[in-house]
Design a protein around this nucleic acid. Structure first.
Lengths: 248, 248
DNA sequence: GACTCAAAATTGGTAATACCAATTAAATAT
DNA sequence: ATATTTAATTGGTATTACCAATTTTGAGTC
């Protein structure tokens, strides 16, 4: 099969994606106006618009009529289609995502314990240390991101690329959920201590190359996270009801 | 939040998707030329082109310069991004997909046994009967599709929409793999008999609302499928080596 | 009637230009 | 200093033209 030159719009999209990945424009920044950017890249405005639409559909950019084009993410979000937009915008699917995570992380932990290299193990340990260091930081979302990085390091150690892709997307999905209480997991002491112990046990099982122990540690961790989120949701709901009662 | 009217190109894409789903154009058919189709839909050619690009990126259409636009699929393929195209086009990822299926189907079977309604159970049984009826049909891919439908009926019975979405995509991925031996699973008698028994055991466990039994049946089934595919791959490899030896 | 080749037509891809509608910025009036 | 109005800027859509690849058609020859 001959090498087909990609279409202009695809080349422009790839170039813009590289600029975004390099941090040329910060998260939340407004891109130059289309007319200006087209001139800068020496392309036509329709071709640029087509490229921008690709990045918009990947969840990286957002355009507002009359207002400009803004950076939402500097890297593409894993799954992008209407149904996943629905999952992202409706917090009640968070438990569906957790259920599937439960299955996948047990599986990932098992394979990671079997297949991890010394480099993989070093990476998992580094991520764990980073996560401990970030505890108590100003922004609990830092800790949430470090948590995701730790779990993804384990998935990487499973050496299953399909699993990694799906898990990466689930983390994007989980983290982008509107109005979730995920950050509260990292700020309540009665939750943080057990979480740390679970993370340590999971890491130790992988370092010891013990698949069944790793699977059980992963599953116990997910049960705990699920139960904790339910408890936090219930607390939030009680607070809301109490506030509404007082305001009458 | 006010209801925002979608962009013209998005509306056109949705309309074209509906026409495709209704079978307005058959698989492999060439669409009317862009200029003609734009006139038919009373839209501008750039807007139509943008809509077509969306369907092309969903894997539904293919365009050839000077040649026309052709129908590849009448429904969108589950995940569509470059990495998943890689998985689709490289058969060695089939085992990665099977590993993840292993985890997810055990989980799905468990929840299906817990949550299935009478309708769900009737659907699972109907799919099982259909699958039995298709055995020995001219085209073993009919049987492969019926197998996927049976498994997806079970996932539907789990009432987890995220899981259903991911599994649907994995089946699309598995079925679209280039040069796989999946169809051979359905034509070798020594493979078909155990497969049927496993499907029956899985269905019976769900109908009995026994989650642990369902999980174990699903996992045993996937182990068997994995082992069988490896055996078939090995047979194929031996045949290839034998043919090459004879042709020297 | 069949085959070959060249020309014409048709196709998708790209671009320039114009205009519309929404938003933002700047200027004017109080 | 604030509010309102006007102008400018922005993204969205459309028309028209042209380029390059492919397909179709017509002419010439055997």
């Amino acid at each position: 099969m001959t090498s087909i030159k990609p279409r202009k719009a695809v080349q422009i999209a790839e170039h813009l994606e590289q600029l975004l990945a390099k941090g040329h424009w910060a998260l939340g920044a407004r891109l130059p106006a289309e007319r200006q950017l087209a001139a800068q890249l020496a392309v036509s405005r329709p071709s640029l618009r087509e490229a921008l639409q690709q990045l918009i559909s990947k969840g990286m950019l957002e355009s507002r009529v009359g207002g400009g084009t803004y950076v939402l993410s500097t890297k593409p979000i894993g799954f992008v289609d209407p149904l996943l937009t629905l999952f992202r915008e409706n917090p009640e699917y968070r438990f569906d995502v957790l259920e599937i995570r439960h299955a996948l992380e047990g599986n990932a932990a098992w394979y990671a314990a079997l297949r991890s290299t010394d480099e993989d193990k070093a990476s998992i340990q580094a991520c764990y240390e980073n996560m401990m260091q970030l505890h108590g930081s100003l922004d609990p979302m830092n800790e949430a991101r470090a948590d995701a990085t730790f779990h993804l390091a384990i998935v990487e150690a499973s050496h299953n690329l399909v699993l990694l892709h799906v898990m990466r997307s689930l983390f994007d999905l989980l983290q982008n959920s509107i109005s979730h209480n995920l950050d509260k997991l990292y700020t309540q002491a009665r939750v943080f201590e057990p979480l740390s112990q679970q993370h340590r046990e999971l890491m130790d099982a992988i370092l010891a190359s013990d698949p069944e122990r790793a699977r059980q540690a992963a599953e116990a961790h997910l049960v705990f996270v699920e139960d904790s989120l339910k408890m936090i949701d219930a607390d939030e709901a009680r607070k809301q009801r109490s506030l509404r009662h007082l305001s009458r």
